[in-house]
Design a protein around this nucleic acid. Sequence first.
DNA 1: TTGAAAGCGCTAACAA
DNA 2: TTGTTAGCGCTTTCAA
Lengths: 337, 337
Amino acid sequence: MSVRIEDVATHAGVSTKTVSRVLNGNPSVRARLRTRIEASIRALNYVPNASARSLAGNRSYLVALLYDNPMSGSSYTMELIVGVLQACEGTPYNAVLHPFDAADDLAARIDGFVATHRPDALVLVPPHANNAALLQRLDELGVPYSTISSKLRQSRINVGFDERKAAAEIVAHLVALGHRRIGHVAGLQGHGARTWRLNGYRDALRKAGIAYDESLVVDGDFAFASGMAGARTLLDRPRPPTAIFAANDDMACGVMREAYARGLSIPGDLSVCGFDDTPASRLISPGLTTVHQPCRELGRVAVESVLQSIRDGAPPAPERVPYQVQWRASAAVPRNP
Amino acid sequence: MSVRIEDVATHAGVSTKTVSRVLNGNPSVRARLRTRIEASIRALNYVPNASARSLAGNRSYLVALLYDNPMSGSSYTMELIVGVLQACEGTPYNAVLHPFDAADDLAARIDGFVATHRPDALVLVPPHANNAALLQRLDELGVPYSTISSKLRQSRINVGFDERKAAAEIVAHLVALGHRRIGHVAGLQGHGARTWRLNGYRDALRKAGIAYDESLVVDGDFAFASGMAGARTLLDRPRPPTAIFAANDDMACGVMREAYARGLSIPGDLSVCGFDDTPASRLISPGLTTVHQPCRELGRVAVESVLQSIRDGAPPAPERVPYQVQWRASAAVPRNP
DNA sequence: TTGAAAGCGCTAACAA
DNA sequence: TTGTTAGCGCTTTCAA
């Protein structure tokens, strides 16, 4: 059908094994020979057959991304996927995507998945990244994996960013603008993101000498509706906050909806901040001040780290990628501090 | 390493070939034998090795999704991916995702892609679905493909939905509310979506007996900023529109931003409608009236159709999937008609 | 540092 | 309807 390794070997006047060595970056090939073989590969436009390679080498060259079944078009997952694909580019590896419902017992179903796809490595995102039983099973199966934003120590390779510091930075900015009563709509229990962002909020208050007022913190679940509900509770307080920091953008949008429903203007009557920098945070009016969650970077680094650990044997230390705060118009000096 | 087809054959007391026939749904296996073999497969927890299968069968069991490099987290692409993955579930097929920059000459690069991945089928979305040279090259290479929302007749298998009718429905609704001067921010030239939605807009006006006023139609490029710019132009007209229908949600959000910047209220002073039903359309305030683009369905049907054409030989007729209009608060009776 | 030969696990021809 | 045999294209022993 097409060009095979044998054709390259003939063209270069060597054995197929030597071509194979070049293909796999085996260092024990003389430089001159390597150059000649590489020239033949280009000349014949040779591309190795992935199936034959996997079969003979007992490797799939597959990296599987396990994520939660995104109910709505989740830009988080999309960006992650983009990063994962970027990391695979230029390597012999390919990505396999697999949405898994968080409600399912993944620790039990993972065996079937691994048997079917035989991935060389896995990348897990929350909530799966926080599933201790799942990680343990993967350890038992001997499948290398990396996690993204996991809160478990158990994960040998984890990538994330300093969500706590980022949240503190947002809240410190609100303080600097003159806000003293700052509300917080917290994220879903069990997610690292909830704890880190809430802690960042508290850090900034403490640093500013503002007493923590638990009546200004309400629970949310990262969904729009819970942001609305949270704002309702906070704005009904005898002394309502002049600013609300929501643990993610979807909830911040809910806060804005509720504020508008009460005839409040943003940021005049109420400053609002979010977290994630989803597309909606740019599209909504006014633009939402938020933390850019570096999803692509996270996906890219997660893949690179786990592949490196396969190559080099030693698992690399957990990684931290940089983040950035997006200052937009939704936060301003309070009208009535 | 693990259970092989030979083990199943031994267990069931048949030849490997017969097991293979069962695996591949070959009808020429007696029912009783089939049942026995299937029992053995379950008993041994056998899973075929995909690489060996591909190599021997000269098929990759891969469906490649070629989409444009999404600059921002595109919910369109994400939803499509979800649909594609859904369609692969329960089949031996897997999806390979490949973002391709629309600026690149894909028709020239497709050979390398096909040689590397050897996909059994391709699914193309705009703008690639509108790339005539690309489709021609695929025809030459003999790779089956389906397109999504392509405007080219050339594509034998195309899935889409009636965008023209959906747009007309939205505009008819504005008319029914009492609007007579309705502006339109059109999509990017060359996209089917631009033409279909613009035509739908004109259809609705004609049906309502409202003369088409070209000063109320401005060009956009599907991006937020072009929605703002379009609104600026339209609202600066001597007799500005009381409603604006943007060809997608991102531009509709831009229209809203510009309206707010002028102190207009929505929908009191200006009704706004979009198209696509992106996450932002739900999160923005007021909620945006828009057409739900059935991306998952499109992705799912595109895969199913092309796989069916591989099985049955005959390409199925182009498919139309249903859509739905999302009525939200951004469109209402005009305050000053 | 390089090469020869033996599979990896499956399917496709062909035969029975 | 079922079984036998020969590969698919590559990597891996092992030897040179």
